[in-house]
């Protein structure tokens, strides 16, 4: 089974592009299953289900979605195998910009859109830089110049990836993506494969349900902002009051 992990900022076009791509796969008689991981709510499963393929949804709810994702990969793989999928598409959402869902042996696709601003390729971090394939969507609504600059920034952030322009509305680029997916390697076992980017530590009082603000409520792995010069000032004199 080929295990394809799709990530990217909200509304980048992940679902739209994958729907077009899955249609092409289905036309060739290839068995596809799709799973969506999200935080609180998703309606993407309806779109995938409309294709008539097996669909699963995982919501992280009160847990960190990054950790939830990593902790469930083995089960998702087993679910896909059970349904006889040749290609398992896992769309992830809600992951933070510190994280990347790329796993060795799985093809990692990052979707990013032209509307998100030229600094986004740098801001998205490892999600983009560890991807095997980067899809740039929504080129239909921005200028040629912006497309060129945006793509250059993407290539700077990840020089090794295959970069593809796609259009989630009319499916442009989805046949090429299908080809790229078909050329990727199968993974026979997900257990023992390694995350390409480690997950952040998260063991503070807020992880266990604390809701109050202030140092006296905090325990465990706590990191504070370094304010530099302001820090020294603050220790000498009281903070400037805000209600001048």
């Amino acid at each position: 089974m080929r295990f394809i992990i799709v990530s990217g900022p909200p509304s980048a076009g992940k679902t739209a592009v994958m729907i077009h791509t899955i249609r092409h796969l289905l036309k060739d008689g290839i068995k596809v299953a799709a799973c969506k991981i999200d935080c609180l709510k998703t309606s993407d499963d309806d779109n995938y289900r409309a294709l008539g393929i097996p669909v699963a949804v995982g919501l992280s709810e009160y847990l960190c979605p990054d950790h939830f994702f990593a902790a469930n990969l083995e089960e998702i793989y087993a679910w896909g195998s059970y349904h006889g999928a040749e290609i398992l598409i896992l769309e992830t959402a809600g992951l933070c910009h510190r994280c990347a869902p790329a796993v060795q042996g799985c093809q990692s696709i990052c979707v990013i859109d032209n509307l998100s601003g030229i600094d986004t390729p740098q801001k998205v971090g490892p999600m983009l830089s560890t991807a095997d394939v980067v899809l740039i969507s929504k080129g239909d609504v921005v200028s040629q110049a912006e497309r060129e600059v945006f793509r250059q920034r993407v290539e700077m952030a990840n020089p090794d990836a295959a970069v593809l322009s796609v259009n989630g509305l009319n499916g442009q680029g989805s046949l090429k993506l299908k080809k790229i997916i078909m050329e990727s390697a199968s993974v026979n076992r997900i257990e023992g494969q390694e995350l390409r980017c480690s997950m952040p530590a998260a063991i503070c009082s807020y992880c266990t349900g604390e809701t109050m603000i202030g140092s006296s409520y905090q325990m465990g792995n706590v990191k504070k902002v370094d304010f530099g010069k302001f820090e020294k000032m603050r220790s000498k004199e009281p903070l400037p009051s805000s209600d001048v």
Binding site: D140, S143, E146
Partner: peptide, 15 residues
């Protein structure tokens, strides 16, 4: 990629 450039009426500047 550099050999064809397109302008259409749907395109706007967003930067």
């Amino acid at each position: 990629r550099g050999m064809a450039a397109e302008v259409s009426q749907n395109m706007n500047f967003v930067m």
